[in-house]
């Protein structure tokens, strides 16, 4: 559906995106996670055909997207900040979109308006941040897009609006295999919604992996071996990405196939061996640390 190969982009001398690869399957939900300034919005702007790539290519259904008006008809891009003419009411803007898009569906717009309880006589520039998001979401979904791209859609939304938004997305993915690309700095919000996650930092793609693989590839365990020597030997045999010691208990975060890891540890007849629970957020932090990004305890 969406294939990005080796995408790089510079603004002046700043390398904003550096050799990004992506593969988004039809009907899937693809999450882009990264800290502020990682390049998420720039990447989405490329997918939506707003920016032209310096190097690499972006294919959507085998077509280039930049300056391709017909391909953009089937796509909706919900930007972080909704664009509106200063005097425009929500109604004016909806009418504008109706003109622009042949596939605008007025019934659907009215239904969405009702769900989010939107009074469309209000001027867009006067709305709060969260209300703007909800309006932008209604506009995006009113044309039943095949591809929905959303930049930080839940940022600033209250829990009820958030639930409404997710339910509509779930509906469209389940019913008509809409493809969704969504960015966020909040992993927790995305972990139950996405099939695949791309972690972006400083313009580079750190990981592109299915959520299930992320969940099952990293393990947190604690063990006690009979002596220090054995412990050091074992730590060299497994792929440790984080290691701590408290008393005689060694707590490690390890990457790899669980059965193999267990076998390696069991060879040393551990006095104690426990698997600990690990949230996706922890996995994310450990993966980042594993890539050389240190999460320091900072105080001012």
């Amino acid at each position: 559906m969406i294939i990005v190969k080796n995408l790089s982009k510079k603004f002046d001398d700043d390398q904003i995106l550096d050799s990004i690869n992506m593969n988004v399957k039809k009907g899937s939900i693809y999450g882009i996670i990264g800290p502020n300034g990682a390049g998420k919005t720039t990447l989405l702007n490329h997918l939506a055909g707003v920016y032209k790539e310096d190097i690499g290519e972006i294919k959507i259904n085998d077509q280039d997207i930049y300056e391709n008006a017909s391909a953009k008809q089937n796509m909706a891009y919900m930007q972080d900040e909704i664009y509106a003419y200063p005097q425009y009411t929500i109604k004016n803007m909806a009418d504008f979109y109706k003109e622009m898009y042949t596939n605008w569906n007025e019934d659907r717009y009215n239904k969405l308006k009702e769900i989010f309880d939107i009074n469309d006589k209000k001027r867009i520039t006067k709305l709060s941040k969260g209300m703007k998001k909800q309006v932008a979401f209604c506009f995006a979904l009113s044309k039943k897009p095949e591809i929905l791209i959303m930049d930080e859609p839940i940022d600033g939304l209250d829990p009820i609006a958030r639930k409404k938004l997710w339910n509509i997305v779930i509906d469209d993915v389940a019913k008509r295999e809409m493809t969704v690309v969504i960015s966020s700095h909040n992993l927790k919000e995305l972990e139950n919604m996405c099939d695949t996650i791309l972690i972006l930092d400083k313009g580079k793609s750190i990981i592109e992996k299915s959520i299930e693989a992320l969940r099952t590839d990293v393990h947190k365990i604690q063990f006690v071996l009979k002596n220090q020597e054995q412990e050091e030997k074992l730590l060299k045999e497994i792929n440790v990405i984080n290691s701590e010691k408290s008393g005689s208990i060694r707590v490690v975060v390890v990457k790899g196939e669980w059965n193999e890891i267990e076998e390696k540890i069991n060879k040393y007849n551990p006095v104690l061996l426990d698997r600990l629970n690990l949230t996706l957020e922890e996995v994310f932090i450990y993966e980042m640390e594993g890539q050389g990004y240190e999460i320091k305890n900072q105080t001012i």
């Binding site: 939900i29 779930i170 993915v173 389940a174 919604m193």
Partner: peptide, 12 residues
């Protein structure tokens, strides 16, 4: 769709 909405998880 119903179960996915109820749990707010990915329908896939």
């Amino acid at each position: 769709r119903e179960l996915a909405s109820q749990l707010t998880i990915n329908p896939n």
